[in-house]
């Protein structure tokens, strides 16, 4: 990571393309105006390795849906064709009852209100209610999505969720080296954790939440102390 440029809303962002033929893509926090490319959020300017995608990483707690992102949600209502799922965004997502692995009109899943599900957003548009699915609609397989039985859901910042999906983030592999655990990370700021003992589940949840601003060495210490 290069020394980060920090921008505030209204600053012009020094966005450049390494290859002038490439199209520059602007991600969250950047906006093209008459005056050029402007930041609309406070944070540090980041770009991908090929240098043509740019975005801003700042602090955020409220989820704004985006297509294709995995989310952990709670079913809050059900109708004949849809479940309504709270994913922490402004409006709850619709989950078609047939959007599960192996679901047909005769064999439909029967999930109660309050069930936790892991799914992927298929429609995320600012003018519409988001829609999600609990299977891969191309292959028809679950791909790890579906109902999350037992376990514990904890809320965290959106940045922590994004970082946990990065395999270089130490906390999950450190916890995994001490005990078996199942984790589902939603990019909506919710993490589901399941281990065989409730005591260990709470340990793991606390360790993940507290690791947000910890270095590798600090994470190692934290996990070591938990399992003395």
């Amino acid at each position: 990571m290069s020394p980060a440029t920090i921008v505030l809303p209204g600053d012009s962002a020094p966005v450049t393309a390494t290859d002038p033929k490439q199209v520059v893509r602007l991600g969250p926090g950047l906006l093209q105006t008459e005056a050029g490319i402007q930041a609309v959020q406070a944070g540090y300017l980041a770009n991908n390795s090929s240098g043509n995608s740019w975005w801003i990483t700042g602090s955020k707690k409220r989820y704004v849906p985006a297509t294709g992102e995995p989310v952990v949600g709670t079913i809050i209502a059900r109708s004949a064709e849809y479940y309504k799922v709270d994913i922490g965004s402004a409006y709850s997502a619709l989950l078609p009852i047939l959007a599960f692995e192996g679901a047909t009109k005769r064999n439909r899943p029967n999930l109660a209100v309050g069930t936790v599900v892991y799914g992927r957003l298929t429609i995320a548009n600012k003018d519409m209610e988001p829609e999600m699915e609990c299977y891969n609609s191309n292959s028809g397989k679950a791909d790890g999505y579906g109902e999350l039985k037992e376990g514990l859901v904890v809320n965290c910042s959106l940045q922590l969720c994004q970082r946990l999906l990065n395999p270089n983030t130490p906390i999950l592999s450190l916890l995994g080296s001490k005990m078996p655990l199942d984790v589902a990370i939603g990019l909506n700021g919710r993490i589901w954790v399941f281990t065989k003992e409730p005591r260990l589940t709470i340990f793991a949840c606390n360790a993940i939440i507290n690791s947000e601003f910890m270095s590798q060495a600090q994470c190692q210490n934290l996990v070591h102390e938990l399992f003395v």
Partner: peptide
Amino acid sequence: LMDAGVPMRTI
């Protein structure tokens, strides 16, 4: 508003 990440034209 900046802490919440609400998009703004300026500060």
